[in-house]
Simulated assay, not measured.
Amino acid sequence: MNNQSIVLFLMGPTAIGKSKLSLQIKKIFPKVELLSVDSKLVYQGLDIGTDKPTSKDLQKYGYRLVNIVKPQIIYSAIDFYKDATKEIKNILKFGKIPLLVGGTMLYFKILLNGFASLPPSNPDIRNYIYTNICFKKKKRLFDILKKIDPVYSKKIHMNDVKRVLRAVEIFFVSGGQSRSQLIQSVHKKLPYKIFQFGLIPHDKSVLYTNIVQRFHHMLDSGLEEEVRALYKQQDLNISLPSINSIGYKQMWLYIQNKYSYQDMINHTIKSTVKLVKHQLTWLKKWTNITYIYDNQKYLLIKKIQNILKNNF
């Protein structure tokens, strides 16, 4: 086996310390190249609320797929698949080893399994479309479908609101691709030998404490000022995935006087804990993965060392 067949995955929930660990790995193993698997780190200007590595670290360690699109863009799972597979090929081409790091489990899944299916449902976006764009009028909803997906609109009745709404939602979630286009698009899984590691908490209460402390650190570091700067941009709104992300959504609502300051804090922490539970549920069901407790990170260093020793 040669280095062109090796890819490393490092998954884990929010606030468990994946980014710091990945930088440590990069220092120890120079052949490793870091690639972010995070649906929010792709956005420019979303720095504090995403706990993004510093500009200095990004430049020093070459983290890929960070700061690649403006927050006005809807960056889809399909966009990630195309960007990630391209970056992986480039890394391997130069004799390096891709280390994919992040907590967006859907992104890892499509790299492992490939996909010809549609993106998962997003209740928030679906509700926003129906309530604020179509004003709960099924004819208006169907007219939108006819414009964005004329092929599918001929196969479905206007009164089938559930399916019509899902088709319109797909257009928004996928970044402007219709249901008909996606059905025809088949993406293959990665053709490499993949070593998967999951960073999990040795004590969930410690992780939840870290979540609270981390968010208060974000507030102290200027999260409100960062979101206010985004709020001033007229082409940004809370329906966009960038602004609708945890921390930014709640601060946006605070700026709009829809939340008190304390409500903003409480809702952000609650949403983050909910996200972590969701991420851990994904990890529990994962296959072909080696779990590493967050208080035994040195074991991951040893395992990577063994992988390199046995394959190079």
Rank of each mutant, 00 (worst) to 15 (best):
I73F: 12
S36W: 01
P30E: 00
T14D: 03
N122V: 09
F29T: 08
L58N: 15
I48M: 10
S36G: 05
I16D: 08
I97Q: 06
L100P: 14
P30D: 03
K20T: 15
D83T: 00
K31Q: 13
F29G: 04
Q72H: 13
P30L: 01
G102F: 11
I97S: 04
D51V: 06
L118G: 00
L58P: 01
N67C: 02
K27E: 15
Y43M: 13
T104P: 12
L112W: 01
F94Q: 13
Y63E: 12
A77F: 07
F29S: 05
G12V: 04
G45K: 12
K20Q: 13
D51K: 05
T85R: 07
G95E: 05
T50E: 10
P13E: 03
L112C: 05
L100E: 09
P120F: 03
S121M: 02
K27V: 13
T85Q: 08
K70Y: 07
G17D: 08
G95A: 02
K96Q: 14
G49F: 08
Y63P: 00
K20I: 10
V69F: 10
K82H: 03
F80A: 07
F94M: 10
I25P: 08
L100K: 09
L111T: 03
G102M: 07
K26Y: 07
L23P: 01
L21I: 11
S76H: 07
A116N: 15
L118D: 00
Q72Y: 12
L46Y: 09
I48C: 12
I16P: 11
I28V: 14
G49H: 10
K20S: 15
I97H: 03
E33H: 11
Q44W: 00
Y63G: 04
K20V: 12
D51Y: 02
M11P: 08
S36H: 04
L111F: 02
F80S: 06
G95K: 12
D47T: 15
E33F: 02
I74K: 11
G45M: 07
S117P: 02
K70N: 14
L100R: 09
P13T: 14
K27Q: 15
S19M: 04
V37L: 15
K96A: 12
N122M: 03
L58A: 08
M105T: 09
P71F: 06
